[in-house]
């Protein structure tokens, strides 16, 4: 859908940088070991004595030990031990580098994984400043982020390769992951633990903004939904409450207070709908509302029996929710 950087080799944060460095050690070492083993096997095959049916079995090694063989085995054991210890040390130092991220003035986000979407709640000491969004995280560049990971139904896994490694969202066991984005950009993440039918359509975008852009975005997210300006949007707002939408979705500032599906207060400001399933365009939104099962079979949103004018009104209203 909407692109976004999704690449371990293109780190955008200090931690992803450390992980990429570890990868650049692991890959050559393991390649060398693999090639060496292959060469040894082929040499052994080539040098094997070609015996015929009549040749007596070669049992000479029983009576006289083979010093060369013992030397080779010892050399192999020592080389393996040194390499493994080296990789272990590299891994330990990478782990320490990951944990060393300074966390002063961190942004706190509570990220809940559902089948199959993400809910993000931006925490704040003042309750009135807490806001909820879905499937998209905005973070300020250069400021650390502490994400509390919560699994709502089954185990999911948070993985934004350009920013950090993976961490699971385990139901009943909240845990945290912290990262920092050092360059502005759009970083794509996915659920990295198979979580059911639509696991592949559970995408999370992390958008790293400059601090000013982030403050602007957060201020807009805190505001309740815009009042519909046109007559069509007004009709859509009423239909949203009259039809089944409000049974699951919330739009802050209106009577829609469902808590089972993504909060739609600022849905038009997001890049995608259906957790990265479709780009957020007028036509895609209409097609999605009418029949989400066509794009994401098994998702909890039911197909709607809706007259075309009703659909147009609701879609127009959602389009105003910037």
């Amino acid at each position: 859908m909407t692109g976004g950087l999704h690449d371990v080799e293109a780190p955008a944060g200090a931690q992803a940088q450390a992980i990429a460095q570890l990868w650049h050690v692991l890959l050559p070492v393991c390649t060398i070991v693999f090639v060496a083993v292959l060469v040894a096997v082929f040499v052994a095959l080539r040098r094997a004595p070609r015996a015929t049916r009549e040749t007596a079995p070669d049992v000479s090694s029983l009576s006289q030990p083979e010093p060369a063989l013992a030397r080779a085995v010892w050399a192999g054991v020592i080389v393996c031990a040194v390499l493994l210890l080296g990789l272990l040390a590299a891994s330990v130092f990478t782990d320490r580098a990951l944990a060393r991220l300074p966390l002063e003035d961190a942004l706190h986000i509570r990220l809940t994984g559902y089948q199959w979407w993400w809910e993000a709640q931006y925490d704040d000491p003042a309750p009135s400043r807490i806001f909820t969004t879905a499937n998209e995280l905005h973070v300020p560049v250069g400021r650390p982020v502490i994400v509390t990971l919560v699994g709502a139904d089954v185990i999911h896994s948070f993985w934004v390769p350009s920013l950090h490694g993976k961490k699971d969202l385990i139901p009943g066991r909240p845990q945290t992951i912290s990262f920092r984005a050092d360059r502005p950009g759009v970083y794509r993440g996915t659920c990295a633990e198979y979580c059911g039918y639509q696991h592949a359509h559970m995408v999370l975008y992390v958008i790293a903004d400059t601090p000013n852009d982030f403050a602007y975005w957060a201020a807009r997210q805190r505001a309740p939904a815009a009042k519909p300006a046109s007559a069509l949007a007004q009709q859509g707002a009423e239909l949203f409450l009259q039809k089944s939408c409000a049974m699951c979705h919330a739009i802050d500032g209106t009577g829609a207070q469902g808590r089972n599906a993504p909060n739609l207060t600022h849905v038009a400001s997001r890049m995608t709908i259906g957790a990265g399933t479709l780009a957020n365009s007028v036509t895609n939104r209409a097609a999605w509302i009418l029949d989400p099962q066509q794009f994401k079979p098994g998702a909890n949103m039911p197909s709607q029996n809706m007259a075309p004018d009703e659909l147009a009104a609701i879609n127009a209203y959602l389009g105003t929710l910037q």
Binding site: Q242, K243, S244, M247, P302, S303, N305
Partner: peptide, 8 residues
């Protein structure tokens, strides 16, 4: 009525 799809 009207708030829940028929099949549900």
């Amino acid at each position: 009525g009207g708030h829940i799809p028929d099949n549900e």
